[in-house]
């Protein structure tokens, strides 16, 4: 990983925790307000490929962790970035009032990821144009990917309550 990038990251932003777990990997822990500026800083440095936006539910700590994985396409003339390196940007938000600013203005492909996280975790993205349901047909009391949603219990309660039809005249 490029030493200069790490130095300029920590000099531009305070309150960042930067780690290098592997030589081609950089993990950045940022506060919620700094996410957009860190993303746009990294995009300016040639990391123009957003792999995905993910979310982890740390229920015991009462937090959601949003994860942005970035790398470079490596086509820009001046970019010193190597496409074989990934940057994982993480931010923690409280579980009670989970809102974060949408990153669609920087990366267009963040749109379906944020829509999915809104549906499956219940995180609100400010400035997202359509936070409509993406996958699910039914409504769930708790968004189903949260850790306190017990899918086995749900299946037993809900699908178990549906009676079989016409069993009395099946003689085979």
């Amino acid at each position: 990983m490029d030493r200069a990038l790490i130095d300029s990251l920590s000099s531009t932003f305070d309150a960042l925790r930067v780690e290098v777990p592997r030589e081609d990997r950089l993990t950045v822990q940022a506060p919620r307000d700094a996410v957009m500026s860190v993303l746009s800083f990294l995009k300016g440095r040639g990391y123009d490929h957003l792999h995905m936006v993910s979310c982890v539910d740390w229920m015991e700590e009462g937090q959601f962790e949003l994860v942005y994985v970035l790398s470079a396409y490596g086509t820009g003339q001046d970019s010193a970035s190597n496409p074989g390196e990934e940057i994982i940007l993480k931010t923690r938000i409280p579980r009670e009032l989970p809102t974060v600013v949408s990153s669609i203005s920087l990366f267009k492909n963040a749109e379906p990821y944020e829509r999915e996280i809104h549906e499956l975790f219940g995180v609100r993205f400010e400035g997202h144009p359509r936070l409509t349901p993406l996958f699910l047909e039914r409504d769930y009391e708790i968004p189903p990917f949260r850790k306190d949603f017990d899918t086995r219990q749900y299946v037993e309660d809900f699908f178990g309550s549906i009676p079989p039809v016409g069993e009395e005249d099946q003689d085979v």
Binding site: T151, R152, Y154, F159, G166
Partner: peptide, 20 residues
């Protein structure tokens, strides 16, 4: 009977309860 998705919240377990 749901097969390997027996504990999935989004798949139907017994299809013959909805259509014959």
């Amino acid at each position: 009977n749901g097969g390997m998705y027996w504990d999935s919240y989004n798949t139907i377990k017994h299809l013959d309860r909805y259509i014959p």
